[in-house]
Nucleic acid binder design. Structure first.
Lengths: 227, 227
DNA sequence: TAGATTGTTAATCGATTAACAATC
DNA sequence: TAGATTGTTAATCGATTAACAATC
């Protein structure tokens, strides 16, 4: 542990940090299944399609140590990652937009694994207000400030159409929201101190499509060669 | 254009490739709004919270050139990215699991921007089969092979609970699916030639939570100093 | 103990940034 | 033309990989 780490500003290489999220998800899953207590860098690497050296290198930034010949003790590793990502601090989030995606999010069960709770869902459509989504009632937008105050909400998920996403974001920023989890395809214009996470759902599909194209090309070349 | 590019195996730095997806999304949005025809690296950088040098460097891997003093011509740039990601090739995708998330995906309007169409949605719950999701009827799993053959489906989205995700994946691989778009939290065990894209929705939230923690810490330190 | 697996250092590779010439 | 913006090269910085000693 160097000086910077002691000051509590634990710094990870950006690439490592991204993978730590994935390890967290994998370990949570293994922990919930409860079949194994130890896992080796080789096994993790195999599941995630990366190299075991990479896994060990990533873990070397953590305090948890593995045991030679045994591997890493899952509860310990997961506890450290939980700490790192603050999945023990309970955060309340609100959802703006009770369309299909907003409702899916409100019903999502995985939030409990990361110490997060959806406390309200809002819509501007009078026909939707008052309807239930799981255990939550759809509320009108005017109730947003009250809910933010009541539950000390810092995070809001935007699940409205592209055309009204910016408007929703401005509203939320005005109410003091600190982070926006943006499920619309709109790239939002926000003050620099507001955290944004864009979740344009089609992005992953672009990667798949590109890989399929590459594969088709290399297969076409192969069959040309053998002709 | 070097030799490798001429062979059609256009290679990009991995980091650049990831950003190209984001540029694609941004440019699609600007194109649809139709207000501007040209955009500078400075403007793009500002919207995406990166540097203009980065944007220009990324674009230097493309064939499209910008005009000094003017910027990049959006239709040309977008056309090249469309080509790259194969958003002109129409791909059919199927959705496994007609829960909230599966239904949200089936209703998602953004697929048309990337040349993709949802052709069917499946569930194993007899109570759901026959119900409509938008213009699609929920079908039983036994119909999967027929639909795959009929529409030449290569991509399947898995929207079932974690506990049955592996089973669904095995089924799809058996039916010849080439790429799996995995919305379950399960890390799937798949043959190496199957493309996987994991979309664990909570991953983005982990990043937000971590940034909130860092911010709280640095604010706490600041207020300590001023005391 | 022998052997498997971790942890770390050094070398390589890749990505970003800085600087500035080219150009519209 | 003058000036703004692109495009590219070189320098720096960061990430991955290889190799192997440490260790349970």
């Amino acid at each position: 542990m160097n000086l910077e780490e002691r000051k509590g500003i634990l710094r990870f290489p950006k690439a490592t940090f991204e993978r730590l999220k994935i390890y967290h998800s994998l370990l949570t899953q293994l922990q919930n299944e409860g079949n194994v207590k130890y896992i080796s860098s080789d096994e993790i690497a195999d599941m995630l399609r990366i190299t075991p050296e990479q896994v060990r290198k990533d873990f070397s930034f953590l305090e948890t140590n593995g045991k030679p010949k045994v591997g890493y003790y899952i509860p310990e590793l997961l506890a450290e990652l939980d700490e790192l990502f603050g999945t023990k601090d309970r955060d309340s989030i609100i959802i703006i937009g009770a369309g299909h995606l907003g409702q899916a999010l409100a019903n999502y069960k995985g939030f409990k694994n990361i110490g997060t709770q959806v406390v309200a869902i809002f819509d501007n459509d009078p026909a939707k207000i008052g309807q239930m989504v799981g255990e939550l009632m759809i509320l009108p937008l005017k109730d947003i400030p009250r809910v933010i105050r009541r539950f000390k909400v810092e995070i809001a998920a935007i699940c409205v159409p592209e055309s009204s996403a910016q408007e929703a974001a401005d509203l939320l920023v005005g109410y003091g929201i600190k982070a926006i989890w943006n499920f619309s395809t709109k790239i939002l214009d926000l003050p620099k101190d507001i955290i944004v996470q864009n979740e344009d759902i089609t992005r992953g599909l672009l990667g798949i499509k590109h890989m399929l194209i590459e594969r088709r090309q290399s297969e076409a070349e192969k069959s040309n060669v053998t002709k």
